[in-house]
Design a protein around this nucleic acid. Structure first.
Length: 578
RNA sequence: CGGGGAGUGGCGCAGUCUGGUAGCGCACCCGGCUGGGGGCCGGGCGGUCGCAGGUUCAAAUCCUGUCUCCCCGACCA
């Protein structure tokens, strides 16, 4: 049993001045973690217990689906990273160093290369497949901006798993199993979470899902559609989300584009005001460069380009065009449009624009005229300029999916899964002979979880103005026994006895046997946030009872619990709480 | 990388503009009282003011350089 009289639990009354996120403040105040440098955090005893409980859940669920635990080096030769092309591709985010013989080394930011390397050496035949490996190992990333305590750090423990299959069906099967395991992990951790479709990003591959825990400190935005029964019907990262926008009624187009003078109105807001028209009836021109080619993207004035969707639609990394490029290829910045650009360019019109055009058969839009201080009114896509159509806008709250309006919530990405396909097996020569004796690359998947993010997300989701209230599956202790009075008193003796009984009944117990005052002990208990608090003081002792409080909601058990048989009563209470 | 802010005792801060022997609250140590929501009295410990250089009779304070940390944005397998 842990006793606060000798536990290193440095609680603080005030949060560190630079802590912004609630989880950052509370985790430091509760004595769970301490900072060593930017994005570098040490876990103190109570915090590490929480982390280890999350890890234990993850390990159990990995083993349940037959994944095998391994441990690979964090320090690695650069060679395999060169072979997959990531040595050059990832840039400054990877820590690089040289050993004493001046060989290039890296600190692993993930372990695809190393895992695939070993599997390439070992797997010969389709009979060896499928299988999966996982590890709990540090990852090192030179994040441009570490922040929010333990949420975005430069060094962190990750559970990373890799699946190896002979074909896509095998991958799909493994992928499905991991999805189930992930659902169990997040459910068991007690988090509110969503599985969302996500961008495959630089990992390449086919499908990807992210596991998002909604909370204020979230760095990502999640689009959600919930039906009348409260069931989630749609969940996607805003980077890839697709939804239907309400159409805007358009004014009549007329026979062709009409020039309008618009002095000094280089922004949509200024233009909407000057023309006295809703921004949604104007077209925003977004000039980009894809694969060294200029393209002009048009979205409704009240919409925004989502660059991740755009990159997917255009088939490659996208950057905004510079003012010089815009001037040379299209027209004066601020007044560019799809009609008569300086040079012929690719024009991409967002789907919502097409939908509104279709809904107002005679309607036209306002676009830049490619002349300073001038726009064109009554412009009709297709009639007045040629274009492609793609969904490239960012979904906004109120758009609909299956008729249901969507909301957008910030969320922490607590895990992700990818279908890697042959992104790593091919360059690293991880092949096998199939039943026909043909050599084929192994089909891979990768599956990551950051335990520290589960911890921080739990704090974000479950706290009140007094402190943390842990989900019981990951609390540092199940029961916090507060012994009022100073050491040597009856309450202290009884508290110690109760604590022992609870522990014998299978509960994890921390006993506050310190000499401090009641205020300090109760405040610390609330800060630390164990699901149950048993308070032993003179007041109730006289009645032969101890006090019990459920941390979440600070709900007191009426009349306390009888001292006689207290362990059974606490166990019953324990079963009832979330 | 762009913008903003901050480094003074364990935590939170004042002092810097206008140079003159470094202060407050909490925490900590000793003694006593108190003992159900951070209580009270008395006595203490602890800081080369991030670092380096410069100006000056004198630098936390002015100047130069540098390191570190935080926030917003960019970025983020």
């Amino acid at each position: 049993m842990a006793r606060l009289s000798d536990l290193l639990l440095p609680t603080e009354r005030q949060p560190p001045a630079d802590a912004e996120a609630i989880s950052h403040q509370l985790m430091v105040r509760a004595g769970l973690v301490r900072q060593l440098g930017a994005g570098l955090w040490s876990w103190l005893p109570a915090g590490w217990r929480v982390h280890q409980r999350v890890v234990a859940i993850i390990r159990e669920e990995m083993e349940r689906i037959g994944s095998q635990e391994v441990l690979l080096p964090l320090l690695q030769p650069a060679e395999p990273w060169r072979r997959t092309g990531r040595y050059d591709a990832v840039g400054d985010e990877m820590f690089r160093l040289a050993d004493r013989r001046d060989a290039d080394m890296v600190l692993a930011m993930t372990h695809e290369e190393a895992m695939t390397h070993h599997v390439a050496q070992v797997v010969r035949s389709y009979r060896d497949l499928p299988f999966s490996l996982f590890q709990l190992q540090l990852k090192e990333r030179d994040e441009p901006r570490p922040r929010a305590g333990v949420l975005r750090t430069r060094e962190f423990v990750m559970k990373d798993a890799y699946s190896f299959a002979a074909d896509v069906e095998g991958l799909e099967e493994q992928y499905a199993r991991f999805r189930e395991a992930y659902a169990r992990i997040y459910d068991r951790s007690g988090l509110r979470w969503y599985e969302v479709e996500s961008d495959t990003g630089m990992m390449g591959g086919r499908r990807a899902h992210e596991y998002m825990a909604p909370c204020a400190a979230g760095e990502d935005d999640v689009v959600l559609a919930v039906d009348e029964d409260g069931a989630t019907r749609y969940a996607a990262n805003v980077e890839v989300a697709e939804a239907t926008a309400a159409t805007v009624p358009l004014p009549a187009a007329g026979d062709g584009p009409r020039p309008v003078d618009t002095p000094g109105t280089a922004t949509i807001a200024a233009l909407a005001e000057q023309l006295d028209r809703p921004a949604g009836t104007l077209l925003k021109a977004f000039p980009v460069v894809v694969a060294e080619r200029m393209a002009l993207v048009l979205v409704r004035g009240d919409h925004q380009v989502e660059e991740v969707k755009l990159a997917r639609a255009l088939g490659g990394p996208v950057r905004q065009a510079t003012e010089e490029e815009i001037g040379a290829a299209i027209g004066p910045a601020g007044f560019i449009g799809p009609v008569d650009p300086a040079t012929p360019i690719r024009i991409v019109v967002d789907r919502a624009v097409v939908e509104s055009t279709a809904a107002s058969p005679d309607g036209g839009w306002v676009v830049g005229a490619n002349v300073v201080d001038r726009h064109l009114d009554g412009v009709v896509p297709g009639r007045d300029f040629e274009h492609e159509v793609a969904d490239v806008r960012r979904v906004v709250a109120g758009d609909t999916v299956e008729g249901l309006p969507v909301t957008i919530e910030p969320a922490i990405e607590a895990g992700n899964i990818f279908q890697l396909m042959t992104r790593y097996s091919e360059p690293l020569g991880a092949t096998f002979l199939d039943a026909d004796g043909e050599e084929r690359p192994i089909i891979m998947g990768s599956y990551g979880i950051g335990p520290a993010r589960i911890v921080a997300a739990a704090v974000e989701q479950y706290h009140d103005d007094r402190g943390i209230s842990w989900p019981k599956a990951i609390a540092p202790w199940d029961v916090h026994v507060v012994a009022l009075g100073k050491p040597g008193t009856e309450e202290q003796e009884v508290a110690a006895r109760v604590a022992t009984e609870l522990e014998d009944a299978g509960l994890r117990v921390v006993l506050d046997d310190r000499a401090g005052g009641a205020g300090q002990k109760l405040t610390d208990a609330e800060l630390l946030g164990c699901p149950l608090r048993i308070t032993v003081g003179r007041r109730s002792l006289a009645a032969g009872t101890v006090e019990a409080q459920i941390r979440r909601g600070q709900e007191d058990v009426e009349g306390g619990l009888p001292l006689e048989g207290v362990a059974d009563a606490v166990r019953d209470l324990w079963e009832r709480i979330p």
